[in-house]
Simulated scan of single mutants.
Amino acid sequence: MNTYERDALAMDAYSNAVTAAAELVGPAVVRIDIERDMGSRYGRYAPPPGAGIGSGFIFSSDGQILTNAHVVEKAKRIFVTLADGRKFPAGLVGIDAEVDVSVLRIGADHLPVAELGRQPLRVGQLVIAVGNPYGLNWTVTAGVVSALGRSLDVPGSKKMVNLIQTDTSINPGNSGGPLTDSAGRVVGITTAMLPMAQGLGFSIPLDTIKAVLARFAQKRQAPLTGVSLGVGGMRVPLDEHVRRTLRLAQQSGMEIVEIRPRSPAEQAELKRLDIIIAADGEAVTEPQDLQRLVRRHSTGDKTIITFLRGGRQRKVTVVL
């Protein structure tokens, strides 16, 4: 075999590895669009006016998505577009700005999932990034791990540590997307690039991601303190036909995306994807409305929650 044939085989192997990895993780990669409050410390990097585009990936088939904290920080509204073109409003499950990781959730089930890796990375290892740079949907780039354990000073933020440095092309809009190995398993979240240094990209390693997920899970499972319904949710528009049929004046409600175990909401048999439209007869159009109304009560009080399930209006009495 001559040198040309060996080079061709090596190139074919490289191409096949990148193609296979991209095909595995691609269906789980999402585009994230936001409407942002204009006071964000990351505002200088966000597309004007007050909007942003980033990436993320589904890691749980019940609609949970990993992305960067800076992608969704101070977002007024978050929208997620799947690889198949479906678009959903998203709720914020948890955010850790110190390590730039956040978790979102959308109202969908049985979704394609990106598998989290298990093996430690090595310098020189092939890695693939999938994301939406400059709003160009589902773009694939490849490179190698250049270094591990890097630190990076981010303007307006704390110093980021223990990062993966790669020569994989990372551009605005890639943030929050997966960095995978040649088997398509996620080994990091792309987080930053140096604008004046071509060929340098940084990603959050898997150990950091798993630690954040564990903290979020522990927080959700901790006993409730104070008066709370025990739900997390997001503002969603109400179906126009449902509004007319039920003669509702409001245009939005709060869709439940999280129900804490053993919470008042779980005991009252509220379910994920129920849309709360009122508490004690007062309209609920977003999570803040529900929090305000529930906090009027004391532990042991009862509150009447009005909600939509399957297009039908229901009521339930919840003991707080």
Rank of each mutant, 00 (worst) to 15 (best):
M38I: 14
A108Q: 04
P112G: 08
S40W: 15
N68V: 12
G131D: 06
A69F: 11
G63S: 03
H110W: 04
V101R: 00
Y45I: 13
L82K: 10
R118G: 14
V29A: 12
A108M: 04
F79Y: 15
H110A: 02
A83L: 01
D109V: 03
A114P: 09
D84P: 06
H70E: 06
P120I: 14
R36P: 04
F57Y: 08
A147F: 15
Q125F: 06
S146F: 13
L66H: 11
E73S: 07
K74M: 13
V99Y: 09
A129Y: 07
G135N: 07
R36K: 15
L111V: 05
A46R: 00
R122P: 00
P47R: 05
L66W: 08
L66M: 12
P133E: 07
S151A: 14
I95G: 00
G94R: 04
I53E: 12
L152W: 14
V72A: 05
V72K: 02
A90T: 00
V101F: 06
K87E: 07
V140W: 11
K74T: 10
P47H: 03
T67R: 02
A108V: 04
K87L: 09
F57G: 13
V30R: 00
G39H: 14
S151G: 10
V103K: 07
P47W: 07
R31E: 15
V93D: 12
R122E: 13
V145R: 11
D37M: 13
E73K: 03
G135D: 06
V72S: 04
G117N: 07
G63L: 10
L126R: 06
G131W: 03
G54V: 10
G85A: 09
V30N: 02
Q64R: 14
L152S: 11
N68D: 13
L92D: 06
D100V: 00
R105I: 08
R36L: 14
S55Q: 01
P48I: 08
P48Q: 15
V145C: 12
K76Y: 11
F79I: 11
T67D: 10
L111N: 05
G91H: 08
K87F: 10
V72L: 05
F79A: 13
K87V: 11
A51L: 12
P120V: 14
G85M: 05
V101H: 02
G149W: 07
F88R: 00
E35K: 11
F79G: 09
I95K: 03
G117A: 01
L104N: 03
Y134I: 05
G56I: 11
A114N: 12
R86M: 02
D62C: 10
G43W: 12
L116D: 12
R118Q: 15
L116W: 14
I78N: 00
L111A: 05
R105M: 05
R122M: 11
I95H: 03
K76W: 06
G43A: 15
A97I: 01
S61K: 15
G54E: 13
W138R: 11
Q125M: 09
I58M: 06
V127Y: 05
A114C: 09
D109A: 11
L148Y: 14
I53F: 09
D100Q: 04
S151D: 15
R77L: 08
R41Y: 03
V140R: 09
L148V: 15
H70K: 04
